[in-house]
Amino acid sequence: MHRLFWIVCFVAALTAGMDAQAPQNPALAGAAPPAAPIPDTNPFSSPADIEQGGALFQTHCSYCHGSFGEGGRGADLTAGVYKRGGRDPQLYASIRNGIPGSEMAPVRITDEEVWKVVGFVKRLGSQGLLEKAPGDSTAGRLVYQKMGCASCHRIEKDGGNLGPELTEIGRRRGLKFLTESIVKPEADVEIAYRAVQVLLKSGQTVSGIRLNRDDLSIQVRDARDNLRSILMDNVQEIRYDKPSLMPAYTALNQKDLGDVIAYLNSLKGAQ
């Protein structure tokens, strides 16, 4: 019987060994293949390189990321937010190796062409770097405070969670987008900040940001920043008719509007 015990242990150890080996494929573990170190900055980022990167993007990326980088099957690249890092070598690695666990495969182009695509992708998500707002950013900061923007928006560590973070908004978004977001915020609302009204069978209504939803329940960040989860069994109706929680600041005078845009345009973040 002792012998049998050892056989069982041996088989168990073998099986454990197989398990341990399974995720060692470097592409699956997310590790980069052994190669020359990736430079810290993009060696191919001239305007001509970026233009060529745009053409390569059309051929190799637009199928999933959309012709304008607006996203689709792949991520929206115009928002300038990158889950796997937005530094040049991080973007390079994502394109060169693909993203394990996602549908993004390695792109079949040369290393030099990858850098050109990196340049183009950064351009897509850095519209604010191309523009300088004419207003007074110091005055704009006061307008920002006076209007109470921080109750919903966060800059670095300060502010609320009901609206998108603005720490790098001056890099990520151009002036047209910033202006529109203030005077007509419902025009383009990120999916993660869609306003929702949940009418309960009890007669109550929960309003807030839609965080998640399946066929059994819906998760909401309510207007007081509480995380709420509601079973669909208790829901009468879900309304999406007002897409944004943000009021339209149409009453703002032109100077204040220009100044607050200049303030937002000055927020370039760490990159």
């Binding site: 012709s67 304008f68 115009t78």
Partner: peptide, 27 residues
């Protein structure tokens, strides 16, 4: 561009980021 054509011939310039964007569809 056809993938089997000469890779050195770049497609026509496409500064697509100036062309606007598709609508974002709501959930």
């Amino acid at each position: 561009q056809h993938l089997t054509t000469d890779p050195n011939v770049a497609p026509t310039p496409a500064q697509l980021y100036n062309r606007g964007r598709g609508p974002r569809f709501a959930p």
